[in-house]
Design a binder for these strands. Structure first.
Length: 415
RNA sequence: GGAGAGGUGGCAGAGUGGUUGAAUGCGGCACCCUGCUAAGGUGUUAUUCCGUUUAUUCGGGAUCGAGGGUUCGAAUCCCUCCCUCUCCGCCA
């Protein structure tokens, strides 16, 4: 949610910035500002009437006053109805506006994304390399068939060493975060209500991508960012407690409606996957430092696995609406010849905090905090990247060194 | 799932229709007093919105779990929902 006062006072700048990420035909600031004017005009009238009523109600009124106040009450009701109508449209339009992209975020869509860092290089195979689906199946790590029988397309079951590898990854991630004691670990609920999904910025946009209970009251979380962002909703934090840093584990559920493309088979895009998420609540002046820290940690996690990856600065149009800036870490999937996102590092500034009303008490009163999030990491892309990048000529897969201690010292995944 | 009780300011806890945004206590902050400490005294201490001014101030609105309703007037009465507690039931 943008600050309407800021929009009011910096209309030109806001418009220019927003056009970096959206088309002109979808942006009508004038309409929003007009609704804002209407809203305040009605409010002024309404409050004047309410003041009259309050004055008369301080003591027992006489019959004549009661008569007058009765009429006044009717007018108040009328104005209230009018106000509600205007506010509904105003809120809808204002909350649909995306965040203002950061200065160093370039305009346009995906095509303008820019690689800012590369680690390692594409492995060369002097044998016929397999894709992760074949490797996972032949080595008995993933059972796609039975998972589909039980749950349908887009699900998989980790089996045997595959389950151990998945668990090893999660342990590796968690141990990494544990070595930073200022971060605290959380296992949140995996289901959340509609209001929380709105605050996190996933509603209304992602309504169709979430799994809802039959009564529509709860949905399964699509990322624990949804939970972490809501954790301090409505709270006024103590300045000395900031920054608050969390990492959370959750299984994530996404509908991913529509058919899968062949390039997304296997475990690249599924209805269910596991992820550790980092999340910060910071003071505004510190949020870009926090951003750098999150990015460095996310990169360190992938480097630790010695996987070839690119770090990519997303163009404005490719960042999700709540974010002022996003940098993705993408690992190389050899069989697909593409880089796939394993972490998304984002700064929402005060956009989420405004929706969720998360503030801190400082010397100059209450202010909105800044929120940031970064995956650290999602396993579902790391797993296939390991299989493909670490595969051997004999059809086995080497286990990254940092994971071996979680797998009883095992060095290879074999049949 | 059934029955009952309850949700008030940072905390505890009054308040059942009319200067109650809210007594009192604790805590916090400021100042004062007393050799030190302990104690004591005085004052102050929620959030948010609109307008005004813009170091600041002032005027007004809203908020006693949330949303509706009744009334000239609601923390107080009614309805719906959410949450907490107690007892019973269920529990792959």
């Amino acid at each position: 949610m943008l600050d309407i006062k800021f929009v009011r006072e910096n209309k030109k700048e806001v418009e220019t910035a927003l056009l970096k990420r959206m088309e002109k035909k979808n942006l009508d600031l004038d309409k929003i500002l007009k609704l804002d004017d209407q809203r305040r005009e009605i409010l002024a009238k309404l409050e004047d009437l309410q003041a009259q009523r309050n004055k008369a109600s301080k003591t027992k009124p006489d019959a004549e006053t009661i008569k007058q106040m009765k009429a006044l009450g009717t007018d108040i009701k009328k104005l209230e109805t009018e106000l509600k109508k205007v506010e509904l449209e105003y809120n809808e339009k204002l909350s649909a506006l995306p965040n203002i992209p950061h200065d160093d975020v370039v305009a346009g869509g995906k095509e303008n994304n820019k690689i800012s860092n590369t680690y390692g290089e594409q492995p060369k195979f002097d044998f016929k390399a397999k894709d992760h689906v074949e490797l996972a199946t032949t080595l008995g790590l993933i059972d796609y068939k039975r998972a589909a029988k039980m749950s349908g397309a887009g699900f998989w079951a980790y089996t045997g060493d595959g389950a151990l590898l998945e668990w090893a990854l999660l342990n590796y991630f968690i141990d990494f975060h544990r070595s930073h004691p200022e971060y605290s670990f959380m296992i949140p609920p995996y289901m959340l209500n509609e209001q929380s999904a709105f605050i996190s910025g996933h509603l209304p946009k992602f309504k169709e991508d979430l799994f809802w209970t039959e009564d529509d009251k709860l949905c399964l979380n699509a990322t624990s960012e949804m939970m972490l962002g809501n954790y301090h909703a409505g709270e006024i934090l103590d300045e000395k407690d900031l920054p608050k840093k969390y990492y959370a584990f959750s299984t994530c559920f996404r509908r991913e409606a529509g058919a899968y493309r062949t390039e997304e088979r296997g475990m690249i895009r599924g209805h269910q996957f596991n992820k550790i998420e980092m999340f910060h609540f910071t003071k505004p002046e510190n949020s870009w430092t926090a951003f750098d820290e999150l990015l460095a940690y996310a990169e360190d996690l992938v480097k630790g696995l010695d996987l070839h990856f690119n770090t990519v600065q997303l163009a404005a149009g490719d960042c999700s609406a709540a974010m002022a800036k996003t940098v993705d870490i993408e690992v190389w999937i050899p069989s697909m010849k593409v880089y796939k996102e394993v972490s998304s590092v984002s700064n929402a500034l005060d956009y989420q905090a405004r929706r969720g009303n998360v503030r801190f008490k400082g010397a100059d009163g209450n202010n909105f905090v800044h929120t940031l999030n970064a995956s650290g990491l999602a396993t579902s892309r790391v797993f296939p990247a390991i299989l493909e990048q670490y595969q051997q000529a004999d059809g086995t897969v080497a286990i990254p060194e940092v994971l071996q201690k979680y797998m009883a010292g095992k060095k290879f995944l074999t049949k």
